[in-house]
Amino acid sequence: MAKRIDVKDLNIFYGKFHAVDRVTLAVPPRSVTAFIGPSGCGKSTVLRSLNRMHEVTPGARVEGKVLLDGEDIYATTVDPVEVRRTIGMVFQRPNPFPTMSIRDNVVAGLRLGGMRNRKQLDEVAERSLRGANLWAEVSDRLDKPGGSLSGGQQQRLCIARAIAVQPDVLLMDEPCSALDPISTLAIEDLIGELKKDFTIVIVTHNMQQAARVSDQTAFFNLAGVGQPGRLVEIDDTEKIFSNPGQQATEDYISGRFG
């Protein structure tokens, strides 16, 4: 379970555009790391490169290393499908599979991976839904379509779906930005619990959220339009929000820009 991530000199390109410049950071296991920074600074791009999801975009490529417990996920011998099975992801907008029921959504990763045993799948579905704090709300309508849930419930369904395949790391790309405050609170509480089992990296625009849920915070920024984004600093969340090492970080978190 929960593994550590080490990013070393990571450069990310979209075609000729240099999107992210030389990022180096470390994410310890069983912790929450928050990525903050203004729009377009590359924090989502860095997140998506942690499970090789960014290469789904045509023309995207990386240079540098991403190590999962010391193993380079960009080594030529590594299958990106295996990487994504180990490093799960939750997206900005809830995206349950519209053709599937709630239960089938949760176990989609296992079913498509070849697991057939109905009893086992039902167990995983219940465990994952309990893990995502959704079981109580949906246990009586598991056969209803996933699209019938509210936005907040859908997002927790997506989290249940992501943890059902038992990844080592969970990446979250602004998981609460489409949700109301109550659903946001539910997800934040959930992140606190998931931290016991998973390594979590979360991108957020909400600095209070970063301060509430994360153990360490990374601040990304970009020098100007068309310039690559870069990591300004990464440190304990408490230190970033009380006594940041860089002026730019302080300006950003105190609302002087961005």
Binding site: N51, M53, V56, V81, E82, R84, R85, T86, G88, M89, F91, R93, N95, P96, F97, P98, T99, A108, G109, L112, G113, C158, R161, A162, V165
Partner: peptide, 29 residues
């Protein structure tokens, strides 16, 4: 079919061909 559905499937460690057969095609059926 939204790109997000394909990405959701990839993120679960589902290969591309299976994503097309089991997620994309049923959605567009």
């Amino acid at each position: 079919v939204p790109q997000e559905l394909r990405e959701a499937s990839y993120a679960l460690g589902v290969p591309k061909w299976k994503t097309i057969v089991r997620i994309v095609l049923p959605t567009a059926l």
